[in-house]
């Protein structure tokens, strides 16, 4: 999207308020990436060790970048799914249950059909995606047909999912130890494990859907002004249901990567994903009231959250202040990336 107002101003062309707001998440990310090495630099300075800023940083290294990448990829997929919903001005909180069900069913099928990608067990991957889509579809139907707010419908579906996963496993954990499948984590190309590239591919797919398909543009139309979209002849109900279905598929991809990362599928696989993904979407600059933002914002948001989490441990911040710092930084990031002039009210 080009910004016409910014181009017309000659001097302020580079630094208009709009542009700063748009790039605020990236600036926050860059600032954080430079901030944590600075703390390392200070620590070594105090101890009298030799330390060239950035060059000697353990945080600012490719190895650590890969570690942040591993931590971020499943959350990125989940957050991308949630992005579509949030662009529509709705919210999807069903991810934890959906992830658990997809992970558990994937593991059952994978182990049952041969236990290695080199057999028919690979079919477990499309199965997991179908299950994710199905759960998302049901979620959307409940939201649209029963006219239950997406917040409540998806939250409830999440609980149903967690319960279903528990019912399926009986509380046990399933180990997926196939070397071929685990190569997602163990095999590296250019220092990064394969799971990062898989996530990148799906991110590009999400970007394509968002900007090059009618469905993607309809998400913005619904989020920007639902009644306007409705009266222009858009089948809003259909767009919503398709949005939730699409989100379900991305949750399933997140589930597969989460299983690939630790080799375990269990009811707890979905734990913590709700907080991380919604936070990441919002921190990235996608507005909760819809119509603004996109998957690249979400990428930046996920990276911000994971850089903070990783950096706090790397600089040795005591555990009891970490949650507080994370919360503060989230507020800061959202405050910077919100254009308050364009928002008349916040609910």
């Amino acid at each position: 999207m080009t910004d016409i107002s910014a181009q017309t101003e000659a001097l302020g062309g580079l630094l208009t308020r709009d542009r700063i707001v748009r790039w605020a998440p990236v600036l926050v990310l860059v600032a954080l990436v430079l901030l944590f090495p600075f703390f390392e630099f200070l620590a070594d300075l105090v101890e009298g060790k030799e330390h060239v800023y950035l060059l000697d940083s353990r945080f600012f290294s490719i190895r650590n970048g890969a570690r942040i990448g591993i931590a971020a990829t499943p959350a990125l997929m989940v957050a991308v799914g949630a992005t579509f919903i949030i662009i529509m001005g709705s919210i999807d909180l069903s991810m934890e249950g959906t992830i658990s069900v997809c992970a558990v069913l994937f593991a059952f099928a994978f182990l049952g059909w041969g236990g290695t990608l080199a057999s028919w067990a690979w079919l477990a991957i499309p199965l997991a995606l179908v299950v994710g889509a199905l759960l998302g579809f049901v979620n959307g139907m409940i939201h649209v047909r029963l006219k239950i707010p997406s917040f409540m419908a998806s939250l409830a579906m999440g609980f149903v999912g967690t319960g279903l996963a528990l019912l399926l496993t009986g509380g046990d954990r399933l180990r997926v130890e196939d070397e071929l499948f685990r190569s997602l984590l163990t095999v590296r190309w250019l220092n990064f494990p394969i799971m990062c590239y898989v996530a990148l591919a799906f991110l590009l797919l999400a970007w394509f859907i968002q900007s090059h398909t009618a469905l993607g543009r309809n998400f913005y139309a619904v989020g920007g002004g639902e009644q306007l979209a409705q009266s222009s002849g858009l089948n809003v109900a259909r767009v919503r249901i398709m949005g939730f279905t699409l989100a379900g598929i991305f949750f399933a991809v997140g589930a597969l990567l989460a299983v690939g990362r630790i080799g375990i599928a269990e009811t707890a696989t979905g734990n913590n994903f709700m907080f991380v993904s919604i936070t990441a979407v919002v921190v990235g600059g996608t507005a909760l009231w819809g119509g603004i933002g996109g998957v690249w914002n979400t990428l930046v948001g996920v990276l911000i959250v994971n850089v903070i989490n990783n950096g706090m441990v790397v600089i040795g911040l005591p555990p009891y202040v970490q949650d507080g710092v994370l919360g503060t930084l989230v507020i800061l990031a959202v405050a910077l990336s919100t254009n308050r002039k364009s928002v008349t009210f916040v609910k």
Binding site: A258, I262, N271
Partner: peptide
């Protein structure tokens, strides 16, 4: 170092990765 991993496998993996960065 000692950090809480909340009895959680995924969180433990992330914290261990950060430990490896810090202490190698």
């Amino acid at each position: 170092d000692a950090q809480p991993a909340d009895w959680d496998t995924q969180k433990a993996a992330q914290i261990m990765a950060s430990f490896i960065t810090r202490y190698g």
